[in-house]
Design a protein around this nucleic acid. Structure first.
Length: 369
RNA sequence: CCAGGGGUGGCGGAGUGGUCAAUCGCACCAGACUGUAAAUCUGGCGGGUCUUCCCUACGUUGGUUCGAACCCAACCCCCUGGA
């Protein structure tokens, strides 16, 4: 499958494939931008909805956008916030509602109940305040067990909103006098759940509108809980190969490898950071330098549950083939101790390690593709 | 020595005649987590051919009772006051 290898954004080359950990609220929990850089992380994704509620777009604008705010000079993608609000509203209908004009969301916070309304236009406006490198259109998330009419509705609205996002995007680019060189990129999101015709329709209509890249939307898992590679491959086939494909929310290490093989170049996922906080660490079972073909390799990594008693006296690093700050300086026994006494350093070291595992994987994939 | 209180599964700690192999928490074991309301959640956790079945268990020994972790007696140990 053809895949773009480099992608020029604001005058700089983004090397693909690349993995963006989720700094949803403008931070990767427990670590800072310097840690991220040292872990080989090249970019982060932040969430428009979360930043809208805190600190708010005007604060972000005032403080020079999210990069300046975070002290981060790598790449930034801003997600539309649609997915988050949709999935929360699905779990609990009292949290908000979805209309043809966008999403209304009620946030319960310490200040009480706040109401947020995000239309496609506002979604783009906020992303300009965030000042990200890649912006994502507001899309209509399709639930896992969606019926045909729901899938059709989600694709219809995704296309309609994408048009509105594009119009608003161009308006903002013009107003700011940005050029092809200096403007951010805008990605559309392909919905359509498990329906190949709907995925195809969505992809074709989005391409007519014209985007800088195309995202894999929805919940792309089969009944076994594995990535549905069949539908993902189909989406690759119906999206342009001269534009980057972005697997939103993908995935675990094997899932990322599988999607790169199918032509996807950008990824983000909460797993490495959340797993780290939940004491699940990634271990290379083979030296990545010795892996000939990562795409066909089996059993090349495994999970290490650091809280296991057997690691109390283990002086080895988390992973013998990892060069991260945690592995170079500390033992499994020490990290286990930090988790046991609930010191936040445990989160920091574990998060750095899991993110380094991903960045090493991306380096491996880059040389393999 | 006297007066009170107490001894329950690896630990803490419920239970005070049958529905108790014994609530719950911790620890331990095995997992889950995929555009982050997640330092969260789920299952297991005496033994057995692991079962609506059996065995062994609530300090020890004996007793009362159809039936005891729960009642009685003696003994052993621990804690708190007083000599």
């Amino acid at each position: 499958m053809d895949m773009l290898k480099t992608f020029e954004v604001k005058g700089k080359e983004m090397q693909l494939p690349v993995f963006f950990p989720d700094a949803t609220r403008g931070v990767i929990r427990s670590i800072d931008s310097q840690d991220l850089k040292n872990a080989g992380t090249l970019g982060l994704i932040v969430n428009t909805y979360h930043l809208l509620s805190q600190p708010g777009p005007s604060v972000l604008k005032h403080l020079g956008g999210v990069k300046n705010f975070m002290g981060w000079d790598g790449w930034i993608i801003s997600d539309s916030g649609g997915f988050q609000m949709f999935s929360l509203i699905q779990k609990n209908k009292s949290l908000g509602s979805i209309t043809k004009n966008g999403v209304t969301f009620h946030l319960h916070s310490k200040g009480g109940r706040k109401k947020y309304q995000i239309s496609p236009e506002e979604c783009i406006q906020i992303q300009f305040d965030i000042n990200s490198d890649i912006m994502i259109c507001l899309d209509y998330f399709t639930p896992f067990n969606a019926k045909d009419d729901e899938i059709k509705l989600s694709v219809d609205l995704t296309i309609e909103w994408a048009k509105r996002c594009k119009v608003e995007f161009e308006k903002r680019v013009k107003a700011r006098k940005l050029t092809e060189e200096t403007r951010p990129k805008l990605f559309g999101v392909v919905q359509g759940a498990h329906s190949k015709p709907e995925r195809e329709r969505c992809a074709i209509e989005l391409e007519k509108i014209g985007f800088d890249g195309y995202g894999l939307g929805g919940w792309v898992f089969n009944n076994e809980g594995e990535l549905d590679l069949d539908i993902i491959e189909h989406i690759s086939n119906v999206t342009p190969s001269n534009k980057p494909r972005y697997g939103l929310g993908v995935g675990n290490p094997q899932g990322v490898v599988d999607c790169v093989r199918l032509g996807w170049g950008i990824f983000d996922c909460v797993l490495p950071t959340r797993d780290a906080r939940h004491k699940r660490l990634y271990v290379w079972d083979k030296n990545p330098d010795d892996i000939k073909d990562i795409f066909t390799e089996k059993n090349w990594y495994s999970y290490l549950y650091i809280s296991r008693e057997k690691y109390v006296r283990d002086n080895a690093p988390i992973s013998e083939f990892c060069d991260c700050h945690a592995c170079k300086n500390y033992s499994r026994g020490y990290l286990q101790h930090l988790f046991t006494i609930e010191d936040t350093l445990a989160f920091r070291l574990a998060t750095i390690h899991n993110l380094r595992m991903y960045s090493m994987l991306m380096e491996k994939l880059k040389e393999s593709f």
